[in-house]
Amino acid sequence: MNGKSPLLPEQNGAKSAYVLAGVTVLFLLLAAALYNGLWGQPPVKPQIPPVDPVFLETTPWRQTYADLVKAKQDLSDYDCYACHDRNKPPPLRFDDQQRIVVPSEHSNIVMGHGSHDRNNLCFNCHNENNLETLQIRNGSVVKFDNIPPLCGSCHGPTYRDWEAGAHGRTSGFWNHQLGDSVRLSCANCHNPHSPRIPTRQPAPGPHSLHEDAPPHQVKSETTP
């Protein structure tokens, strides 16, 4: 169109109608954006998976003979004379480094009791004359459902602490007038053949608000 020629009123009206319609749509979009808060929305939070309920478990990780009896579970592991002969103590075998050779029938047992695994003589605790019981070195016989006196015969201070409630897990009531406190037995936490508590996977640590934050490392002074 020639710029010098005057616009006709009809042409002007049609053009301004388009402009007005465009501006109206623009304003409506702006209003909708303002209403829905496109600006000023909080940043999207990173997803944090809920913690595995395994980490909330309060049950002990081992079951003792007494627990098995109470729960009426399979006690065949404690039926020694199904295989062994009565009146005939089983022989012990050692390798050339004086380590006990665990027979293949008991291959589930991993020996690791005492510093350098030196408490490796089965009959330090098992009773060779009656395999269904245990024995203390002073000659007294202990049943499988009450082992703390046997453990305490060597671990005196720990036994004393356990009796006072200071060693080992407790649950229930601190106030004994309102309810009972439940105390566990040695074998609920310690495997008698290898009493050191095994390492485990830790529960997830705190999630940082800033995902790109570099992990802070500490070094041990005793290990390289």
């Binding site: 909330l56 478990e57 309060t58 002990p60 990780w61 897990r169 407790t170 649950s171 229930g172 009531f173 601190w174 106030n175 007038q177 309102l178 309810g179 406190s181 936490c189 508590i197 485990r200």
Partner: peptide
């Protein structure tokens, strides 16, 4: 009269 939750769950 009960123990706190952190105590009951402590595995050691």
């Amino acid at each position: 009269g009960k123990y706190p939750a952190c105590l009951e769950v402590c595995p050691v």
